[in-house]
Design a binder for these strands. Structure first.
Length: 220
DNA sequence: GGCCAGGACACCA
DNA sequence: TGGTGTCATGGC
């Protein structure tokens, strides 16, 4: 497929989703660190459950890197229990908090001047942070122009015939970064719209009736 | 009662 | 290097 055609198609999909759903106002959080925490807690979890876990962290006074570092594992795990995998996620939050405190004095704002690729490599070095979580933090907490690839993105764009079903993370990410202007605001909205659309029209068992993307990609 | 949800890591061949 | 198992709650 010609690159110009692909670029136009990706732009059309974006505009179509934006017209239908409007701005999604992501990421829903009161601070950068809350966004980072949410990025970990949402791993393989429903966002409604993550919201409960974040509320419990706030109530327990545990929504800061210092508090998470100091908290005993049982207390932290109990707070985030609704988000599932709470023992594993307890270790992940502690690793994230320790990294932020050690390298940035616990201040997420200090991540902003960092060079994007270098910061991404740092994040990937933190236990429990993989590519999607790192990119979510870069985009939503730091405002870097990084496109987030998740299960929804893979599912939708493979069904649209624009990506292989088993395409690797890097390959799928390049589909967007090579064909769209590197604007954090657009990447932010695009990913949020993909999630919004997937929840309504692109679940594991397809429910494509009324899907606004049909006219663009002509799939059934 | 089963499926699914805004993944990542450990282990093994 | 790729495939599989594990981690776990809550809504539908």
């Amino acid at each position: 497929m010609a690159q110009q055609n692909l670029s136009q198609k990706l732009s059309d999909i974006y505009q179509c989703l934006l017209d239908k759903y409007g701005p999604q106002h992501w990421w829903p959080a009161e601070s950068r660190f809350e966004m980072m925490t949410g990025a970990v807690l949402t791993q393989s979890a429903a966002w409604t459950n993550v919201e409960k876990a974040i509320s419990r962290l706030k109530e327990a006074g545990l929504l800061s890197p210092e508090a998470i570092m100091k908290a005993d594992e049982y207390t932290l795990a109990e707070a985030i229990r609704p988000s599932g995998y709470f023992n594993v996620k307890t270790r992940k939050l502690k690793a994230l908090a320790a990294w932020l405190v050690a390298g940035y004095n616990g201040q997420a704002d200090k991540l902003l001047p960092a060079e994007t690729d270098a910061l991404r490599q740092e994040l990937l070095g933190v236990w429990g942070i993989g590519e999607e979580t790192a990119d979510s933090i870069l985009l939503y907490a730091c405002g870097k122009p990084v496109f987030v690839i998740d299960a929804y993105t893979r599912r939708i764009f493979s069904r649209l015939g624009l990506a292989e079903r088993d395409a690797g993370y890097d390959r799928l990410q390049r589909l967007f970064t090579a064909n769209l202007a590197a604007e954090a605001a657009v990447f932010n909205e695009y990913h949020a719209l993909i999630v919004r659309h997937a929840k309504e029209h692109c679940r594991v068992k397809p429910v494509c009736q009324g899907c606004v993307l049909k006219n663009i990609c002509g799939f059934n």
